[in-house]
């Protein structure tokens, strides 16, 4: 098979299009590149959706944690503690078996036993807890003067939050949130190693890299390819978040802008 044919056959293998059989012998670099790249579709799917939905929940968590009312504060604190205090890996396992048991009682849970939704669910809650904590820290470090100025203008409640507090919170939390986004993409690599089955060998990038490493006993080719893809993905995330950071800080004098610094990669 030429390389173009390989790409045609395997580029969308991870979502079930193209050739069904994975290569078994005579692995070429091209096959490895294509299949691992095809697996990246899943990583991007998990990462993007979890980021988007988790962002909304994270804001609620941050505000809840900063609330004076213990009815909102306590649940938010526990939520953050549970998801930040335990390994994501165990969370995946626990959720998977939890959904399996629930499925027997309520059939409505059956989609959640698949990686597509179940793992996404766990990732959303996990990133919500981590970014909630980041936003909470940002919320706590909003300059006192900003809030006093808002009070002086007679802003209260929702309008004060929407116009003053929330934008500042985003601005201050953004560098931390960028790192969180990168970690999240890295964390997506765990999905198919933690209970959730890969249906018809449709796995993510690490799943295929591991497949090749197992078959060839040569880790020196698939894993660097995987690393290459992840570095590319991280750089893209940094680029996109950098643009948003520019927009969030556009009203500030040039020198006072916080530059995004990449502080990579603590796993959770």
């Amino acid at each position: 098979m030429s390389c173009a044919e390989t790409i045609a056959a395997y580029a969308f293998r991870s979502i079930g299009y193209g050739e069904r059989l994975l290569p078994r012998t005579d692995f070429t670099i091209c096959q490895q590149f294509t299949l691992i790249g095809s697996g990246m579709i899943w990583n991007i799917y998990f990462g993007l959706l979890a980021l988007a939905i988790g962002f909304v929940i994270a804001n609620a968590v941050a505000v809840g944690k900063a609330s004076a009312n213990p009815m909102f504060r306590k649940p938010a604190e526990w939520f953050v503690f549970i998801f930040r205090g335990s390994p994501l890996f165990i969370q995946f396992f626990f959720a998977y078996f939890c959904f399996l048991s629930l499925k027997n009682v309520f059939p409505i849970f059956s989609p959640l036993t698949s990686a597509t939704f179940g793992a996404l669910f766990v990732l959303i809650l996990n990133t919500a807890a981590y970014s909630g904590e980041i936003f909470y820290g940002a919320l706590k470090s909003i300059p006192k003067g900003d809030i006093e100025a808002a009070d002086a203008y007679g802003m209260t409640g929702w309008s004060r939050f929407r116009r003053i507090i929330w934008p500042t919170m985003m601005r201050l939390g953004w560098p931390g949130y960028t790192n969180e986004a990168i970690f999240l993409f890295h964390a997506t690599a765990l999905v198919f190693f933690a209970g959730f089955p890969a249906f018809q060998q449709r796995g993510d990038a690490l799943y295929y890299a591991n497949y090749f490493a197992d078959k060839t006993f040569n880790p020196f080719i698939p894993y660097p390819i995987l690393a290459f893809y992840f570095v590319l993905l991280s750089l893209t995330v940094i680029g996109v978040f950098g643009l948003m950071n520019r927009r969030l800080n556009r009203h500030l004098p040039q020198a006072a802008r916080t530059r995004l610094k990449r502080r990579p990669m603590l796993m959770r």
Binding site: A189, L206, P219, Y223, P264
Partner: peptide, 19 residues
């Protein structure tokens, strides 16, 4: 080491060190 997901390293190093 910090730039790459560490699960990749865990899977990679064990075989690589062994070999």
């Amino acid at each position: 080491v910090r730039g790459i997901p560490d699960i990749v390293f865990f899977l990679f190093f064990v075989i690589a060190l062994d070999q």
